[in-house]
Lab assay of single mutants.
Amino acid sequence: KKSYVLIKVKNPKTKETHTIVVPEENLEEVLKALASQPNVKVVDIERFP
């Protein structure tokens, strides 16, 4: 059974918020990819039960 993680990201320029759902096993690479985006800020990470 896969567990999923909900990542909320915000664009500081446009103030838009997006929610991305990723499998927990991919969380680290997704966070690394997001960290390299200049106008993306991770605001929240939630685990799915």
Rank of each mutant, 00 (worst) to 15 (best):
K1R: 08
K2H: 14
K2W: 08
S3Y: 12
S3D: 11
Y4C: 11
L6S: 08
L6V: 10
I7P: 00
I7Y: 00
I7L: 04
I7C: 01
K8C: 04
K8R: 11
K8V: 09
V9W: 15
K10V: 15
P12C: 15
P12Y: 15
P12L: 15
K13H: 13
K13D: 12
K13T: 13
T14W: 03
T14S: 08
K15R: 04
K15I: 03
K15F: 11
K15N: 14
E16K: 13
E16A: 04
E16L: 05
T17F: 11
T17C: 08
T17P: 03
H18L: 12
H18Q: 06
T19A: 08
T19M: 06
T19Q: 08
T19C: 14
I20H: 03
I20M: 08
V21P: 02
V21I: 12
V21Y: 11
P23Q: 10
P23E: 14
P23S: 09
P23M: 08
E25P: 03
N26D: 12
N26V: 10
N26Y: 09
N26F: 06
N26K: 12
N26A: 10
L27M: 07
L27H: 03
L27G: 01
E28R: 10
E28K: 09
E29Y: 10
E29T: 10
E29S: 13
E29V: 13
V30M: 12
V30L: 06
L31M: 07
K32Q: 09
K32R: 10
K32P: 00
A33Y: 14
A33F: 13
A33N: 10
L34N: 00
L34D: 00
A35S: 10
A35F: 07
S36Q: 13
S36I: 07
S36F: 09
S36D: 09
Q37Y: 08
Q37C: 14
Q37M: 09
Q37N: 11
P38Q: 08
P38D: 10
P38R: 03
P38W: 02
P38V: 08
N39G: 12
N39Q: 05
N39M: 04
V40L: 12
V40W: 05
K41Y: 07
K41C: 08
K41R: 11
V42H: 01
V42I: 11
V43C: 06
D44Q: 13
D44R: 08
D44T: 13
D44S: 14
I45K: 01
I45D: 01
R47G: 03
R47L: 09
F48I: 14
F48R: 06
F48H: 07
P49K: 05
P49R: 03
P49C: 14
